[in-house]
């Protein structure tokens, strides 16, 4: 009987030890990491996402985009994330402070999305919103040969009543995706939120802890980070 008591005690002690070591200790450090207040800009970083983007984060979560996409840029020299243009700097713990559900991901079937907002900015003349709509509607349009599934259920084909919607996207689509005459294709609220979220994805603020390991892609750019530039 004594040995059994010992067994129970041992199990409990081991569990408590790993819990303390892995979780509790870190909870006191990274778990309590504060935001950085930038005196020059009078702002605290990271900045909260706009409301629509936060709602878009939920769409990203519920559609399981994390099954194929990571959101963590590895440091230069550890893989080639920087050479792929997946981020100007690697991700640091502080980048994720305000996210209700941190989806750093474990699979890279598609590219890392941590800075996709910045990558698509300026694509096709606008902020990239149109690019994302086309891509979500049919990835083959923007990325022939992609295995990313189409998300057409995030769009609605409906009869035009009165004025056509300014949000309609069929003008961006090729002939074989055109709706029947008198109809238009509009993104649903969820698609709008999701794309707002994707556009918001950019870690550009150079935190002190990111500065000393910042490796610029080309020489001469590295100064910007050390000055804590916020682009």
């Amino acid at each position: 009987m004594n040995r059994i008591a010992l067994l129970f005690l041992g199990l409990f002690a081991a569990l408590a030890a790993s819990w303390t070591g892995v979780i509790l200790v870190n909870q006191g450090s990274v778990g309590a990491l504060p935001r950085v207040v930038d005196a020059n800009e009078g702002l605290a970083f990271p900045q909260p996402l706009p409301g629509v983007a936060q709602q878009g984060h939920l769409v990203y979560q519920d559609l399981g985009c994390v099954a194929c996409h990571t959101q963590q840029v590895r440091r230069a020299g550890f893989g080639i994330d920087n050479k792929r243009g997946w981020g100007e700097r690697h991700s640091v713990a502080r980048d994720y402070l305000l996210e209700p559900r941190v989806l750093i991901g474990t699979h890279r079937i598609g590219p890392d999305l941590r800075n996709v907002g910045q990558r698509k900015d300026g694509q096709e003349g606008r902020d990239g919103r149109e690019w994302h709509y086309r891509h979500l509607y049919d990835p083959q349009l923007t990325s022939p040969g992609s295995v990313m599934p189409p998300f057409r259920f995030l769009f609605e084909t409906r009869r035009i009543v009165g004025e056509p919607s300014p949000k309609a996207i069929q003008a961006l689509l090729p002939a074989w995706h055109q709706p029947p005459a008198g109809h238009e294709i509009v993104p649903t609220v969820r698609a709008e939120r999701l794309v707002s979220y994707l556009l918001s994805l950019k870690d550009t603020y150079a935190y002190p802890e990111a500065a000393n390991v910042y490796v610029a892609q080309t020489e001469g750019q590295s100064g910007a980070a050390a000055e804590g530039a916020h682009k």
């Binding site: 979780i23 778990g31 713990a93 402070l97 941190v102």
Partner: peptide, 11 residues
Amino acid sequence: DPVQGVMQPLV
């Protein structure tokens, strides 16, 4: 009551 930031992947 999710923990903050990268504590989540740790847990």
